[in-house]
Simulated scan of single mutants.
Amino acid sequence: MIDPTLSPAEYDAIADAAAHWCMRLHADDCTLQERLAFEQWLDAHPLHVSEYEAMLEIWEVSGDVPRPEVVVPMMQAKSRTPWRTFGIAAAVCAMALPLAAFSGWNLGWLPNSYQHFETTDNVRQVTLKDGSLVELNLGSELTYSNYKDHRQVTLKKGEAFFSVNHDTRHPFIVKAAEGKIRVTGTQFNVWMYEDRVKVNLLEGSVLVSSNDDLPGDGLRLVPSMQASYGHGDFMPQISQTDANDTSLAWRSGKLVLDDLALNDALPLINRYLETPLMVADNSTGTIRIDGIYNIRELNSLVTSLPKVLPVYLTRNKNGNPVLNSIPQRTPKS
């Protein structure tokens, strides 16, 4: 958010205040009066929210500082000076953490570069600070942080295709849901839907772990293999990628449904819908669908399904569109 009425000095003062509140809200001796004062400061100007959110992002990716239990409204767009904010956040972390005499970078606590990317209704290609390329599907969000001993991407939602620059001494780690994917240089796709993650490998090799807290680096994939995992899985499920796999058609703006049961097709469709489509029962879920669709026009698919499938649409109490199978009439004898 840009406010032309504020001078550079006033912007810096807001950033300083955001850094101060980060430090105080993480402190054990933070009082109720201070928290109330923070809420008043937060409400005083919209830029206070965006600067404080920017500060929290840096603290969050460090992985060593707990996030405070403060509810902050999310802004649709954040305009800030990343290195100024990052520098202040690093200084605050140095004051707040033990061994303050050491830099967060040398200890591996803090990254020396940080990027945030988000897409809404367009596929987007971005270049990370290490030169790696990432294609983001619609409705996707990720962050990139460069640490002393590794490069880290956190896929917060959606889907991304990675072309990672090779660097055996500086591995590339993608965190998605509860697991992670570890690589040195390769091409692979990661899709996260609800609590499930699917990884498709095209080139090189990756190690996939279903839980970041488990020992070891996970199971190795080679090209034309895929892995999937979800909440509570001890190990990822490994399988061979079908020769006619179309899961990467999104990179060309397409969704290909190749004679799939609705139960299997809905997760592919719902990632592009604001309100998920549902089926009324298992018998409806077994109805099959095929076709090639524009991923930017999936909302129109919902209303057109009754024209091509033996179903009709209703809505549940939460407002979700629901597909119901049309009962088959028994012919009279």
Rank of each mutant, 00 (worst) to 15 (best):
G87F: 11
L155R: 00
A44V: 01
T154S: 11
V208A: 07
P171A: 06
D121W: 00
R151K: 14
V208R: 06
D233G: 11
N244Q: 14
S239I: 01
D195M: 03
P331H: 04
K254G: 03
H231R: 13
L313S: 03
G158D: 06
T330I: 14
L142I: 07
Q40Y: 03
S163T: 12
E159S: 11
K157P: 00
R196S: 12
L202K: 07
V322D: 08
K148E: 14
A9C: 00
T143A: 08
E194A: 11
Y193W: 08
H166W: 04
V206P: 01
P310T: 03
S209Y: 00
R80Y: 14
K307Q: 14
T284P: 06
W21Q: 08
V153Q: 00
L36I: 10
I181H: 00
L262R: 04
L277I: 10
T286I: 10
A176W: 00
N106I: 07
A101P: 07
E53P: 00
A27L: 08
E69N: 11
P8V: 05
V71A: 15
V126I: 10
G131M: 09
I289L: 15
L214D: 13
S62T: 12
A44C: 09
R296E: 07
A27R: 04
D233K: 07
L257G: 02
A160C: 06
E118N: 11
R182N: 07
Q237N: 11
Y312H: 13
R24K: 11
C22K: 01
K129A: 15
A37E: 15
N106M: 10
N316P: 08
Y147C: 03
L260M: 15
Q76C: 06
L260R: 10
L221I: 10
V256P: 03
A19C: 09
N324M: 07
A160N: 07
L266D: 02
Q40F: 01
T5D: 14
T184Q: 13
A96N: 15
I2C: 05
I269Q: 00
